[in-house]
């Protein structure tokens, strides 16, 4: 290690948690979760191609308590990645980099994803539950 008293890259522990950090980390986490969730789409289409029994089995699985929790999680992950992804696309266009805007758009992505998730699951509940 260098002898000079240069400042080192700080460890995570000394950072105060800020919403911009959370949105960035969660964007990656939801991206990984959604990659795995894509396999479920594959399973669904496969069961449809395979026949009625496979399809009913698939429906029973995603309609089970664990299935519903996973579906709820993936719904939120999808909407979060979507909202925050749009935010990143706008930032890639060179807009929204001032710190107050950056913080505001972070919160907007979080709130937007929760609202969209609630809308979808309210629709599911109103139409008589899932599967």
């Amino acid at each position: 290690m260098a002898d000079t008293q240069r400042p080192l890259s700080p460890h995570m522990g000394i950072y105060r948690w800020q919403v911009q950090m959370v949105t960035s980390i969660v964007h990656r986490a939801t991206g990984i979760a959604l990659s795995v969730g894509t396999l479920l789409v594959l399973w669904g289409v496969f069961s449809l191609a395979h026949g009625e029994d496979s399809y009913n089995q698939f429906k029973t699985c995603i309609g089970s308590p664990i299935g519903l929790v996973l579906m709820f999680g993936w719904t939120w992950a999808l909407f979060y990645h979507l909202c925050n992804g749009i935010r990143h696309l706008i930032q890639d266009g060179g807009m929204g980099y001032a710190i107050p805007q950056f913080v505001r758009s972070s919160w907007l992505a979080i709130v937007g994803s929760i609202v969209l998730t609630i809308i979808v699951w309210a629709y599911v509940l109103m139409s008589g539950g899932a599967a």
């Binding site: 979507l82 749009i86 629709y123 599911v124 008589g128 599967a131």
Partner: peptide, 20 residues
Amino acid sequence: LVFLALWFVVTVLSMLHADY
């Protein structure tokens, strides 16, 4: 994917109680 994901969610919701 902004558009395709929204289409996907709407389509899955339209299949909620669909039989085979």
